[in-house]
Design a binder for these strands. Structure first.
Lengths: 222, 222
DNA sequence: TAGATTGTTAATCGATTAACAATC
DNA sequence: TAGATTGTTAATCGATTAACAATC
C-alpha cells in the first residue's frame, strides 16, 4: 500500500561527507566504526547518521557498528561514484585554469577532458596538457562524448547562455563558479561554489574587539 | 514578555544571495523590485523573500515593492559587509595561489593581506604582490593586525592544527578549502568550499543514456 | 551473559508556504 | 479608486532528535 518515498536530497548531500570520513578512517587502518564515532568527527548526531544510512539499507551490525570498507563500497555504489566521470570546463580564466591544476578532481575520478573559452587569444593554448578550444565547439563535444558534467567558470553575464548551450547538448550536472543563479530545466542539477556569499554569511557574526571600536570613536569622554 | 528570537542562520545565509541579485538589478538601472521578481530570479518563493527580509525591518512599501539601493544598503549593514575586511590565506599551494589571483574577493571588500606556508622553498616568494611567509609567523601576524578571517588551503592533514593555531590568535571565521571537517570553538564560524562533495551529490542523480549502457553490456541477446 | 550499537518509531523542532488584511 | 504588493499569521511540510526494543 505505502510507496517508499525517495531519499531526501539533503540526505544525499551528506553521503559524500560520510564517504570522505570513512576513507580517512580506512587510511588510518581502522576496520569498523560506529554512528557515534562518525558523528563526533563530523559534528553530527549519531541518530542522524544512522537514520541517513538506513535510508539505503541495513549496513550495520548491532553491538558492533559499521564495517568501514563495506560501507564505503555501498556509498560509492549509491552515489554512482565508483567509476570515472568526464567533465568539461567552460571558461579558461583564472578559475578555469586553476581547476585544471586541482588534483582533487582526478583523485576522485572526475576527469577534466576539455576546456572551452570564447577568447580567440586563448584558444589553442595548452593548460597542463589540456588544449583550450573555442566555446563554439563545446556543444558538439559534449554531445559526441556524452559528457554529463560541466564546471562553469565564465563571467556572470555569460553564465546563463553558456549553461543553456551545454544543457541542450546533454549536460546534466553543473558545478557553477559564476556568481549568478542559473535557470535550468528540471532534469539538470546545479551546485554553487560561492566563496563570497559564504564569507558574507560569516561576516554577519564577526565580533569586533573593544579596542578596535574605541580607536575609531570620537573622544567624547573626559 | 516575549523575547525576540535571533534570525535563523539559514536566513542569514540567504541574505548575500539577495544582495547579489539586488546589485545586478541596480547595475541594470532598475530602482525598485518586488519579492516576486527577486523570487523568480533566484528560484525562491516570494513569501520566503518577504519573510526573510521582514526579520530585519520593514524595508518595503505595499503596492510598490522594495527600493533597490535602499535595500542593498540595509543588507550591507546587517551583514557588516559595508567595510573592508582583511583576510589571511593559510597554504600557498595551487588553491592558495589561485585565491590570491581571484578578483572577486577584492571586489567584495575582502582584502587578502598575507599568505603563509610551511614549505621553506616557497617562503619569500612573491605571488601577485603578496610575499609568502613562514606559517610560524601566522599567529603573530593575525594577533597584531587583529585579522578575523582566514582561508584555509593546506593539505587535509595539516588543516586542523593550522586552524587551532590561528583561532588561538583571534581568527573568528574560516573559509575552509581543505577536504576535512574542522573542530572549532563556539565563537568561530567555518564554511566549507567542497567541490568534490558537490560533484558527488549531483552524481547520484545522473541518468545514463540507453546506448551508453548497452555498449558496456554483454551481448546475451540474439 | 553483559555491553554496545543498530534500525526505527514517536516526539520535537524548525522552515516553508498559503492566504489575506493592511495600505501604498 | 483599483491594482499591486507588503508584512504577518496560521497551516503545512520536512528534518532532527530522543528513546528504546532488537540483537550482535
Amino acid at each position: 500500500m505505502s510507496i517508499k518515498s525517495p531519499p531526501p536530497d539533503i540526505v544525499i548531500g551528506r553521503l559524500p561527507i560520510y564517504l570522505r570520513a570513512l576513507e580517512l578512517l580506512s587510511r588510518q587502518g581502522l576496520e569498523v566504526t560506529s554512528s557515534y564515532e562518525l558523528g563526533e568527527r563530523l559534528g553530527a548526531s549519531s541518530a542522524q547518521i544512522r537514520k541517513d544510512l538506513a535510508q539505503f539499507g541495513d549496513f550495520g551490525k548491532q553491538g558492533t557498528g559499521y564495517n568501514i570498507n563495506f560501507l564505503m563500497e555501498q556509498l560509492r555504489q549509491i552515489l554512482q561514484v565508483n567509476r570515472v566521470w568526464e567533465v568539461v570546463v567552460m571558461g579558461a580564466g583564472h578559475i578555469g585554469q586553476a581547476l585544471i591544476h586541482y588534483q582533487g578532481f582526478s583523485q576522485n575520478q572526475y576527469r577534466i577532458v576539455a576546456l572551452f573559452d570564447t577568447d580567440t587569444q586563448k584558444i589553442g593554448q595548452n593548460v597542463n596538457g589540456i588544449t583550450i578550444h573555442s566555446a563554439d565547439q563545446a556543444a558538439a563535444y559534449v554531445a559526441e562524448h556524452q559528457i554529463k558534467f560541466a564546471m562553469l567558470t565564465t563571467p556572470a553575464d555569460a553564465a546563463q547562455t553558456t549553461a543553456d548551450l551545454i544543457i541542450e547538448a546533454g549536460i546534466q550536472a553543473i558545478l557553477n563558479y559564476a556568481p549568478i543563479t542559473l535557470n535550468v530545466p528540471e532534469h539538470v542539477r546545479v551546485e554553487y561554489i560561492d566563496p563570497i556569499s559564504k564569507l558574507q554569511h560569516m561576516t554577519y557574526y564577526i565580533e569586533i574587539d573593544n579596542e578596535t571600536e574605541l580607536a575609531s570613536q570620537d573622544a567624547t569622554d573626559d
